[in-house]
Design a protein around this nucleic acid. Structure first.
Lengths: 219, 219
DNA sequence: TAAATTATTTAGATTTGTCTAAAAATAATT
DNA sequence: AATTATTTTTAGACAAATCTAAATAATTTA
């Protein structure tokens, strides 16, 4: 099933809107794509013919099985590239979205899977959204980058950004494991480093890079 | 100047055909793009209006100043991505072209320059073609990967694939510098390792990866 | 429930990049 | 130089993705 870039963008938009609500309306979709409802209707017909969607005129639309598969593949690519940009090319996590919007349309599956391996099979992108694996499976709960958590909030480490040896070495040294509970003591604007307090241990400081690699949930 | 993917592909094709001959003919271009002469004429008019080309009907075409700049930017992206695929993602050098054809159209300049730095500012792609730098400058002579040289040929090392610390360390250990002359003694099919003979020193073996990082010219 | 409002679809036009078929310009050949 | 062959351009058509304006369906409200 080969999709054009426009088709992929529709599939992706439907996927995201569907998370929040059930069926997705023509107007919602038009707003989210910055296009007109009439254009949406045309495209919905086209994608329905390709059996990617379940669509009844006037009743909104939802992804079919094949559509869901395609959507997960696009989301996987988007989030893996975002991870690459932040982790390897030193982009800020807030400046990667646009570039990833382009990269997500590169078609080679071999490329994506090799990129995944190169990055250490990360489970979350730099915004804390889960990355689908090769089979489209991903964690469903929303987690947060430690760097985004407010002062004093008590959180628990759920997972780490990647499995790279360098990261694991640093975590061992700081005594941080999955399940560790900690509180943000203070955040420094200059280098975005963060002071944290782990259970009954002395306060320590961790760098921006490390804080971005830690995914936590509220306790 | 924002170009569509189709426009970029024409600019790139003209650039490559221009290297071999002077003015590029409509038919040549049609053949190289797997399209029809009529389509080429249409596009040439369009690109001429954007002042990328110098084009007289029936007289063939050549790139103008702005066209050349665009072409170098595309070639730079293509070759940097090829280098990335081979050096970081472990693709074979013979399977990267198609993927790079897609990646070369990603527009972010920041991405390209950061990728360049991440790769160690490589001067040649995995096929031995020179990579233009940020300003469009590149070596003009065609060099060869050592791995492609026939047995017994005497060659001289012109440059190395990248400036990574790991590569430089290995080169120091093997006593290979720019200007070193050597002969291929033997090539092994199993792991594509190569036995080489440097001037009056004992024969040594180098790995496929190292041989691919060495660019040489005939002596 | 009938009218008014909102949402959605249809109809017809536009742009981009392509095509085929025919005309025009250039080049080659006798 | 005149004819033939080749190359290139023009003219008109088509598919994809979009648009505007008008028509129709669904929903809300009085």
């Amino acid at each position: 099933m080969n999709l054009t870039i426009a088709e992929e963008n529709y599939i992706k938009a439907i996927f995201h809107l569907q998370q929040a609500e059930g069926n997705v309306s023509t107007n919602q979709l038009a707003a989210s794509m910055h296009t007109k409802p009439a254009s949406v209707t045309d495209m919905l017909k086209k994608l329905t013919n390709k059996s990617l969607l379940e669509y009844e005129p006037y009743q909104g639309v939802r992804l079919g099985k094949e559509g869901k598969k395609q959507a997960l593949s696009i989301v996987r690519k988007h989030r893996l590239w975002e991870f690459f940009l932040v982790d390897k090319l030193q982009f800020g996590w807030d400046e990667v979205h646009e570039v990833a919007e382009e990269l997500e349309h590169i078609s080679s599956k071999k490329l994506v899977d090799k990129l995944d391996a190169f990055l250490g099979f990360p489970k979350f992108d730099p915004h804390g959204d889960p990355i689908p694996d090769m089979n489209g499976n991903m964690v469903s709960i929303r987690q947060f980058n430690l760097i985004d958590v407010k002062q004093k909030t008590l959180v628990e480490v759920c997972s780490v950004g990647s499995q790279s040896a360098e990261l694991l070495e640093l975590l061992r040294h700081k005594n941080i494991v999955i399940g560790t509970q900690l509180q943000i003591v203070r955040k420094f604007d200059f280098d975005h480093s963060v002071e944290i307090n782990i259970e009954n241990k002395p306060t320590i400081t961790i760098s921006q890079q490390l804080a971005q690699a830690l995914f936590v949930k509220l306790v």
